[in-house]
């Protein structure tokens, strides 16, 4: 296995905010890699930096995808190299129908037959979208919109799919369903970069995980290893390592990260 995406020590500023403070990351071809972290840790910033959505950023460092340096390239070019992105908050086209949304996902492709085959493939992943195919996307429920956002990102036949909090605001059953399909998509050959707050779900399907705090990775490793890590258990999985006699913990564990 070789690294499909390589991030080498990038630093990104949002205006005056120093959001990423030296982040390095390797994503193996065919793997599911997850980035976990709290609000404001910089998870979305990593994805936006990869997609080239932040003007003139990253300030320092390099991003390599599929053997080419992509930082500094235009978003449209980066996407064209084989990156699919289902961003935070879904960002679907509200006033286009479900089918039109999917067609827009395939904007850079021209073979009508293949596009319509791929739309059918998306309907196999998410049968509910087929029922809604003529409906305006803005009228879908949150879960359906998330499914549409993922399918739309897949319509360009990406080598790597970036998902930003697909579980946000969804019921536990729906989250389970969507994560099941993410796994299937991965088994069909798409490398996945998954950003999540729901550490439990994310580590259950991921091969590798990275923990991001305040713009730096504090620890990383295979998901089995992370699940065994005491700090991850305490702060991300919500498992208490020690209980006091009275049944509640009076102090916060100090993070050690190793």
């Amino acid at each position: 296995m070789s690294a499909l995406l390589q991030i080498k020590n990038i630093e990104t500023y949002y205006g005056l905010v120093y959001a990423l403070r030296g982040v390095s990351l390797n994503i193996e071809q065919g793997s599911i890699t997850t980035i976990l972290g709290n609000n404001g840790a910089g998870k979305t910033t990593i994805l936006n930096s990869i997609a080239g959505l932040i003007d003139d950023q990253p300030e320092k460092g390099e991003i390599w995808f599929d053997g080419k340096k992509i930082n500094g390239m235009k978003t449209v070019k980066i996407i064209g190299m084989g990156i699919g992105y289902a961003p935070e908050g879904r960002q679907i086209f509200n006033e286009l129908t479900v089918k039109e949304n999917l067609e827009m996902g395939a904007y850079s492709r021209s073979n009508r037959k293949e596009i319509s085959d791929d739309i059918d493939k998306m309907f196999r992943y998410f049968p509910v979208l087929e029922e809604r195919s003529k409906q305006l996307a803005g009228t879908l429920s949150g879960g359906e919109q998330q499914m549409l956002a993922i399918s739309r990102a897949l319509m360009s036949r990406p080598k790597m799919l970036m998902l930003d909090e697909p579980s946000l605001g969804l019921s536990p059953i729906l989250v389970k369903e969507i994560f099941g399909i993410i796994k299937t998509i991965n088994e069909d050959g798409v490398t996945i970069l998954l950003v999540e707050q729901n550490a439990n779900m994310a580590l259950s399907i991921a091969h590798y995980g990275y923990i991001l705090e305040n713009g730096r990775f504090v620890t990383s490793g295979s998901s089995e290893k992370l699940r065994e890590n005491d700090d991850v258990k305490e702060f991300y999985l919500g498992l208490k390592s020690e209980t006091s006699v009275k049944g509640y913990q009076r102090y916060k564990r100090k993070k050690r990260w190793n």
């Binding site: 960002q91 086209f93 509200n94 006033e95 286009l96 039109e100 827009m104 996902g105 990102a153």
Partner: peptide
């Protein structure tokens, strides 16, 4: 037309259009 649809897409959500490869 596809171009017309892309125009509507850009009008509705420029960022989403960009990450779908629409210039």
């Amino acid at each position: 037309t596809k171009l017309g649809l892309a125009m509507k897409a850009v009008q509705q959500n420029p960022m989403a259009a960009e990450i779908n490869g629409i210039p």
